Computed example of a mutant assay.
Amino acid sequence: MIELLLPSHGRDVAVGKILCIGRNYAKHAAEMQSEVPEEPIVFLKPSTALVGHGGTVILPPQSQDVHHEVELVAVIGRGGKNIPEEKALEHVDAYAVGLDMTARDLQAEAKRKGQPWTVAKGFDTFAPLGPLVDARRVRDPQNLEIRLTVNGEVRQQGHTRDMVFSVARLIAYCSRIFTLLPGNLLYTGTPDGVGPVRDGDVLEAQITGFPVLRVKVRRNG
């Protein structure tokens, strides 16, 4: 069981669902040659995909084209069902910067066959998560700069105001489908600039005022 220390709880809470949002920035949708969605695109990762700051992303032998996707992550501290959008941020205990690692070749094949993305998104270490920031310190999650460097070179740079669906909207939407529980994570989508990572790369993900998330990349097999 994987646990996180929630700031307002003062205790460890088990990580349950990892909810992820696809195509939540218009420019990223464009670079993927996809339309901007009319409703959030939601998929799941297992908790075993988590890896923390200073950890290692393992490139699986099944894929030859793993991509980085830097994201704002909201950590649920108070559960709920059918949460009103105007109350949604009250359910967030913390925020963090995260990475949604994606086996792009496997994802492309799944899309071609009309299959789910689970395999492409769910490998162990495919959900790096930075140190948590108390939500009370984040005045507006839609007013944050976000970027990723690979070996010191800027690869992604964006702003959360450019999300198609706000954090509050995403929480409200997801809560109409899933009962949200303390320790659930919401990866809110990535800006444009996604690209491949290689064995030996060092990734640094940053969001305004947040601690840096740094992970190394290693080929397995």
Score class of each variant (00 low, 15 high):
Glu69Arg: 09
Glu71Leu: 11
Pro46Arg: 01
Lys27Tyr: 02
Val51Glu: 08
Arg136Glu: 12
Glu69Phe: 09
Ala103Leu: 07
Ala127Asn: 08
Arg136Gly: 13
Leu99Met: 15
Ser63Thr: 03
Gly52Thr: 10
Asp100Ser: 04
Ser63Val: 05
Ala49Phe: 05
Pro128Asp: 14
Ala94His: 06
Leu50Asp: 02
Ala29Lys: 03
Lys27Arg: 10
Phe43Arg: 11
Glu85Lys: 10
Gln107Pro: 12
Lys111Pro: 06
Thr56Phe: 04
Pro116His: 08
Phe43Trp: 09
His67Arg: 09
Ser63Ile: 06
Pro40Ile: 09
Ala94Gly: 06
Glu109Met: 09
Val97Arg: 10
Ala127Val: 00
Pro46His: 07
Gln107Trp: 12
Glu39Gln: 15
Gly77Pro: 04
Ala108Pro: 10
Phe43Pro: 07
Leu129Tyr: 13
Ile41Val: 15
His91Tyr: 06
Gly80Leu: 12
Ser63Pro: 06
Gln62Val: 11
Tyr95Lys: 08
Pro131Glu: 14
Lys111Asn: 14
Ala135Cys: 11
Gly77Leu: 08
Lys121Trp: 01
Ala127Gly: 08
Pro60Trp: 00
Pro60Asn: 00
Ala103Arg: 01
Ala29Pro: 03
Thr118Cys: 03
Gly79Gln: 06
Gly122Cys: 04
Lys45Thr: 00
Glu90Ser: 15
Leu72Ile: 14
Gly55His: 14
Leu99Asp: 08
Gly80Ser: 09
Pro116Val: 07
Pro46Lys: 05
Trp117Glu: 02
Asn82Tyr: 11
Lys111Val: 06
Ala30Tyr: 02
Asp134Ser: 13
Lys121Thr: 00
Gln62His: 02
Trp117Met: 09
Ala108Ser: 15
Thr56Met: 09
Glu39Trp: 15
Thr48Asp: 02
Phe126Cys: 05
Ala49Arg: 00
Val133Trp: 11
Val66Pro: 07
Ala30Asn: 01
His28Trp: 06
Ala26Asn: 02
Gln115Leu: 15
Gly130Trp: 10
Gly80Met: 12
Val92Phe: 11
Lys81Val: 13
Ala120Trp: 02
Val133Ala: 10
Gln62Lys: 08
Phe126Leu: 06
Val92Cys: 07
Asp93Glu: 07
Leu129Arg: 14
Pro37Tyr: 10
Leu89Cys: 04
Gln107Val: 07
Asp100Phe: 07
Ala26Asp: 02
Lys121Pro: 03
Val92Gln: 09
Lys45Trp: 01
Thr48Ile: 03
Lys121Cys: 00
Pro40Arg: 08
Gly54Lys: 11
Gln64Thr: 15
Leu72Pro: 09
Glu71Met: 08
Pro128His: 08
Ala120Met: 05
Gly79Leu: 05
Ala103Pro: 07
Phe126His: 03
Leu59Thr: 05
Ala110Pro: 12
Val57Ile: 12
Asp100Met: 04
Ala127Asp: 08
Met101Gln: 12
Gly55Thr: 13
Ala74Tyr: 10
Leu99Phe: 07
Asp124Met: 04
Gly122Gln: 01
Gly54Thr: 13
Glu71Gln: 08
Ala110Glu: 12
Glu71Asn: 06
Arg104Thr: 14
Met32Phe: 10
Ala110Gly: 12
Lys121Phe: 00
Pro128Arg: 09
